[in-house]
Simulated assay, not measured.
Amino acid sequence: MPNLLTRGQTYARIRYAMDHKQPFSLVRIGDGENICLAQSSVWSIKQVLQEPWAVMANRGEKGVTLPSLGLRNQMVTEMKRATVVGVLSPSDTLIRAPRRLKRPLTNKVFAHFRLSPLLTCNACINRYAPRDEAFWRMLKGRRILIISKHANNMKNILEKRGLNVVGVIPFTHYKQIGQTLDKVKIIRHSFDLVLISTGVNAVILAPRIARMFRKVALDFGQWHKNI
């Protein structure tokens, strides 16, 4: 895919957006996102539901319940609006999933939905970033909101780094997207950046928050596990 940004280039764009109060969203496409996008597009629902990831989702472990074409369609819509889309390297070894669920499936769903992001980065940026001092410097002096079921844990990590977390919004399931956006609206003037750790739901939340409230919204997954 063209226009693959380095981590440094991605940080620079995030920093510029915060400095100039411009909307910016980063979403990441991994195996779970691919499986959700594959529903009744490049795969049958039966095939999707047989995947271990889907089985875990329907046990309440992934923040979504499948099948859900509404989820799929909203993901497609918001991916088209995202500033940067993270995709896995064709040779990725970080994500513990069969290769067929990674970049090969991304290529199939992107072709099906005619998705061609203008800017991409490595979808594993959230795994590398916590080890980059440049990442922590970028967050210094910013007012940070966290959306996640792990929000309080993440808040503690950031505050130990001397960062300013101004709010947390717990999130556990796709059905909470509407009420989460309502909560963000209420506090929209109190934060500069939102870190979203909500599984595949972040693909919907990040672009919506960026667009609706002119904020920087990052799908940063379980980055706290990489510290």
Rank of each mutant, 00 (worst) to 15 (best):
Q47P: 06
F110Q: 09
W53E: 03
A38N: 01
S197Y: 06
C121A: 13
E159P: 13
N156C: 12
V165T: 04
V76D: 01
R15V: 11
S40I: 10
L49A: 01
K80V: 06
C36V: 09
S68W: 01
G199P: 01
Q74Y: 04
K215M: 05
L69P: 12
R214C: 11
Q39A: 08
M79R: 04
P130T: 15
S148E: 05
G221D: 13
L88S: 05
V27H: 04
I35S: 03
R7W: 14
Y174A: 05
M212H: 14
W223L: 14
M18E: 06
S89C: 14
S148P: 07
P2L: 14
R81G: 11
P117T: 12
G8V: 13
V48W: 02
A202P: 12
V184W: 14
K225A: 13
C36M: 08
V27M: 02
G86D: 08
P90S: 05
P104I: 00
G63R: 00
H20P: 07
R161N: 15
V76C: 05
N126I: 12
F213G: 04
T120G: 14
F213A: 02
I204N: 00
C36F: 05
V166Q: 03
S41H: 02
L66C: 04
L163G: 10
S41L: 04
L195I: 11
W223A: 14
F191T: 07
L118W: 15
V166F: 06
H173L: 08
R188A: 09
R188Y: 03
A217L: 08
K155M: 02
K62W: 00
G8A: 09
Y11S: 02
L118A: 15
R127A: 12
R161A: 15
H150L: 02
A17M: 02
W43K: 09
V48I: 01
A202C: 09
Q9N: 10
P90C: 09
Q179R: 15
R103Y: 15
R143N: 07
R28A: 05
F24L: 08
F24Y: 12
I186V: 07
I125V: 13
R72H: 07
Y174T: 05
L49N: 02
G162E: 09
L118G: 15
V42A: 02
G32F: 02
L181R: 08
S91A: 11
P98F: 03
P170N: 12
E33I: 02
L26Y: 05
Q50N: 07
K183R: 12
A134G: 10
I204L: 02
Q74M: 10
G141L: 01
R114Q: 14
I169A: 06
A97H: 04
C121T: 14
L119S: 13
I95P: 08
P90Y: 08
M18K: 06
R59V: 01
V27K: 02
T10S: 06
G70M: 10
P2Y: 12
L158E: 07
L145N: 11
R114V: 14
K21Y: 11
R142S: 00
C121S: 13
L5E: 04
V168T: 15
L5N: 05
E33Y: 03
A111K: 15
